[in-house]
Design a protein around this nucleic acid. Structure first.
Lengths: 249, 249
DNA sequence: CAAGTTTTTGCGTTTTTGTGCAGGAATTTA
DNA sequence: TAAATTCCTGCACAAAAACGCAAAAACTTG
């Protein structure tokens, strides 16, 4: 098989499935993975596809590919995501906000998990769509470009009609006296109604945001049921939260 | 065997198989590979074939080799996108479906354009979000993973509440007697209500799909106002459509 | 037709290209 | 943190291309 032919085949596959794996291509075409990698490199130089670890993506779908390793303090968020994922059981309805911690959660979901996720966060939707067994429900409204999430009365109405099992909040600031706070008015409204519409609310936050404050209040500490950080459950900084009745993970 | 004869034979083989190898040609014609190479060089200078390492490919390789209904007809789609973009004026509300032609449209929007786009297509949302002056309104509902678009009663209800100025439909099949047709039930429902909710409906389609048929009907030809293809407006294939009262672009 | 000229072809030799492989670095996953 | 993938780099080797040259074939012209 000629090189050009091979590359044409690869492009065909990419445009067909929106993604390819070096390993399967190498088997299909019977050449070494090295050769595939070189082909992918050349094609990505020409802008015909986007090379990623393990394969390539179609350029039409992949522009907002959030390279996972550019996320701020990723290792901690990964730990948080794993703890959070363990709360989700098959068949649950889960509301999630936006934010990079939520994205990590989306990536940490075990492939066999069958659940329904409801969100207005576009990056989160993209992640959920990649999972084989997860249904995604989009909350519609106008998009706030800064937060890449749908916000507004429509979105809030829609959330109010929902009774979800769980709600995950990417949290920007939490302290005992002021509760959970944030800086974006629209996002705050959204999170408020998400908490109201869920049986159980879970706050995901990296430890550096504990005992910090933002201008707008979402809810009191008492309103959330679980607090997940990257720290061990018995870390002293978490003790006061535990004593005020929150489950720590 | 004469040189001219030989080259004619080579061309024949190229057009027959879309590819030839210098080594097999040299054996078939009983000349040295050097001679074959020289022939291939001359023919490639004349544009009759494309020379590659090891042999040559048919000049139509780029278009023909990959299956035509992938993003590979991109140049054509770019032409369509530019024509379509010229219809959108500042302040308009625009409904769009999904599909790769719509994505091209999203990329072709001039940066100064201030308009509001309404869609349930996740890839389209991503494109619109990249534009500085465009407001995006998301139609919420459950996501269909195959088409990456929100579908269902909620989405249709929402669309029915809208009065948009324009509606762009990525069209998979159109012919005079059957109108616009498609293969996905949910997408058909969605497109139907989009047409009803818009003052003016525009069908975007590459010429390949003109006079083709899919199982489910969206609307009659009379229901759309403008038909945009990559062809010049006076192309004979478009004439019957023009005569049935549609504006051609 | 015959001599001279041009074109074409084949054959070494040298370069370039394409491919696979080994080992170490980087990244992902458990 | 450890184990497993994937990536990158340099290298070796084979296949193909390019180049120069000389012989052969084809064409021109007196």
């Amino acid at each position: 098989m000629l090189k050009k032919e091979r590359q044409a085949y690869i492009l065909h596959q990419v445009n067909l499935h929106n993604k390819v794996l070096s390993s399967v291509l190498s088997q299909e075409i019977h050449v070494s993975e090295d050769t595939i990698r070189r082909d992918l490199y050349e094609l990505s130089e020409e802008g015909k596809l986007i090379k990623v670890h393990g394969g390539a993506l179609s350029p039409s779908f992949g522009q907002v590919y959030y390279s996972p390793n550019t996320t701020y303090s990723r290792p901690q968020k990964t730990i948080i995501a794993k703890k959070a994922a363990s709360l989700i059981k098959d068949g649950m309805f889960v509301l999630t906000s936006g934010g990079s911690t939520i994205l990590e959660l989306a990536r940490a979901l075990p492939p066999q998990l069958k659940a329904t996720f409801i969100t207005g966060s576009i990056p989160a939707i993209l992640e959920y769509m990649n999972h084989p067994n997860i249904d995604v429900i989009v909350i519609g409204d106008k998009i706030s470009k800064s937060s890449k999430i749908t916000t507004g009365g429509e979105a809030i109405n829609k959330i109010k009609q929902i009774r979800a099992d769980l709600c995950f909040l990417g949290t920007n600031a939490i302290d005992l006296t002021n509760g959970i706070t944030d800086s974006d008015w629209d996002v705050v409204q959204l999170k408020k109604s998400m908490i109201e519409s869920s049986q159980k609310s879970v706050s995901l936050t990296i430890s550096e945001k504990i005992n910090t404050l933002q201008p707008i209040k979402i809810c009191d500490v008492a309103n959330i049921d679980v607090l997940i950080t990257e720290l061990p459950v018995d870390d002293p900084i978490l003790k006061p939260y535990h004593e005020s009745g929150i489950e720590i993970m």
